[in-house]
Design a protein around this nucleic acid. Structure first.
Lengths: 342, 342
DNA sequence: ATTAGCACTCCTCTTAGTTGAGTGCTAACA
DNA sequence: TGTTAGCACTCAACTAAGAGGAGTGCTAAT
């Protein structure tokens, strides 16, 4: 158990390092007004804190730097939630100023504002399209041998896919088909379409429409690799500002990671609620060794969910980011559920 | 006018510098087998070439480096077109292997393969959606007060936009509306929809559908900011490989530029045909001082056009990139026009 | 228990010296 | 007259040595 004084010193060190990115020494700490004891005392405490694993030295006679354990303790116990200033709130509100109807626009704008306010990189996940339900299914023929299948979901999302038509496929065939599909698929979620098609609809179609096999096959494969939730980025190059990322290789690895959808998605932890903080190697990705990732979720409508992530150095301004994310998630959730009941 | 020997030396220097990224000296050149004269002679010629502005020195006693004028001369006069090897061609062909129907998939894959083959960054512009023509217009109501408008174009592209319905808008209103819109809009290109709506359709609609004003207004604004052609990137971080981009600031500026749609679009010169090469400051963007951009176009269907750009250092392997782009544009054009007449 | 004092560490910056690649010029050569 | 060998000179890049300074740990005094 840490003494009060140790807590105070640990906090001062982490705060200072977050601010200046320089190893912090005992004198530096002693100058702060909330600190009442001498550099020598601080040095003793620092030695203890180091022994406990909360601090590290870069070399024998350097100042101290928080360890991952130090950051962890800091965010768990020393992060007295603090409001953000009104200018920040104003900026966030500006997202909703221009009465944008489309979810996508709002999210895109949110990503940009978040990265601006934090000066880190933001990633926003849109709603999970897989859980939308089919509102309307339609097919628009383009030529004698190709057509576009369109699915509109209850949330107004539109999925579309081109496919080729079997030869001698008539307009009435198509109509029958669309009718059958609408009867059966409306209300089914996108993730279930594939199953549903194979289990029920396939046989019905084969009874009513000739030469449908090819067609169905195309349709099934088309619905198989459905699109995942869209990903929006803000401030991709913001990390260049951070002194810890003056290393080309690190930056490159992170940028590359952000191009890989699956990697990005594994940054999120949709099952946990509230705000999650992963510090350095707590992230599964090796590339993220020197990064912290703060994530949270927001709700879209009744049962949809989106997610937000902020990526920065482990020396991240946790207090500010957590506060900002908190406001953001609330505002987004509110905007998207209000929208719906409009 | 340059002598034969000067041409030979200039070519050797540019080739060498492209390969090794090091200032090249007279000895280095004299060792090449196609060079038959001594270092001293080469030094004299180099001095002349420098005076003529084709070469530069990094300091008094360094080897020579091609100037922008040198590169320009090189690509204009010394770039004997050379085939690419069969492995490259095979890789390019692999884009078309898996019978993808969708333009978007092919383009996405092309961007990746191009960046792999060149080890530079590739940017592909999809077809210019603005010039597609409306094939079908439809509206799907989501709730009592909102709906999705969907436009399917002759090329199978789907545009959709949410908008709010005026209160007391009935299903039959909607049907009338959709019928009118289809009668008038089918065959109109997306860029003209806006005009057409205002000029003709507006009055007709007002006659037939009550309380349509709001609706039309929404529709008009929705069609106004239509989406531009989609942009696909390949190998965004490839430039990290180039020694000239070991400078964080340069990389950052270029990456930032690539996030700005308007900037990216101004890299292209759609009116010129064939393959364009912009070297260093020939690019309008300041950020591109140290880059060369090679662009070309490919055709999609009868009258659509896409574009390709490769961004690399001025010390780019022009010969290879030009050859690759040439194959690529042909293959893409062929694939997309074949697809259509299938 | 706290703190002033002090020896010690080691990073960082500066200066000086060395090396080597490459040039330009001159004079010899074919 | 064009080509080339030879040589003095330049300058970036590397190495070594020394000075300065921030910061520590320990001891002894308060």
């Amino acid at each position: 158990m840490l003494t009060n004084r140790q807590l105070q010193i640990l906090q001062a060190i982490v705060d200072d390092f977050i601010m200046f990115a320089q190893p912090v020494g005992s004198r530096q700490i002693s100058k702060k007004k909330e600190i009442t004891f001498s550099p020598a005392t601080i040095r003793n405490e620092m030695a203890d804190l180091e022994e406990l694993g909360f601090l590290e030295k870069t070399h024998t006679s350097s100042g101290r730097v928080p360890s991952e354990k130090g950051y962890r303790f800091y965010v768990d116990h020393l992060l007295n939630p603090q409001g953000i200033n009104s200018r920040d709130i104003q900026q966030i509100q500006s997202i909703f100023n221009d009465r944008l109807v489309e979810v996508e626009h709002i999210i895109r704008k949110s990503a940009n504002i978040l990265s601006e306010l934090t000066s880190y990189t933001s990633i926003l996940l849109g709603p999970d399209v897989q859980r939308h339900r089919v509102k309307r299914f339609s097919i628009v023929p383009l030529s004698s041998d190709s057509a576009v299948a369109i699915i509109v979901t209850d949330n107004g999302h539109v999925e579309n896919r081109m496919f080729s038509l079997p030869p001698n496929f008539t307009a009435s065939d198509l109509e029958k088909m669309v009718n059958i599909l609408n009867e059966r698929l409306v209300g089914v979620s996108l993730e279930d379409i594939h199953k549903k098609l194979e289990a029920e609809v396939l046989t019905v179609l084969q009874q009513h429409v000739r030469s449908a096999d090819d067609f169905i096959h195309g349709l099934v494969t088309a619905t198989m690799h459905n699109s995942e939730s869209k990903i929006f980025y803000g401030g991709k190059t913001n990390m260049f500002n951070q002194p810890e990322f003056h290393d080309l290789n690190k930056v490159r690895m992170i940028l590359d990671l952000m191009e890989t959808t699956s990697q990005v998605q594994s940054l999120f932890h949709p099952n946990e609620s509230g705000i999650q903080i992963r510090i350095g190697s707590e992230n599964k990705q090796l590339e993220m060794e020197n990064c912290s990732v703060i994530t949270t979720t927001y709700s879209i409508g009744e049962d949809q969910q989106g997610a937000i992530a902020i990526i920065g150095p482990t020396r991240m301004d946790y207090k500010r980011v957590v506060a900002l994310l908190d406001v953001m998630r609330m505002d987004l959730s509110q905007a998207f559920t209000k929208n719906r009941s409009d």
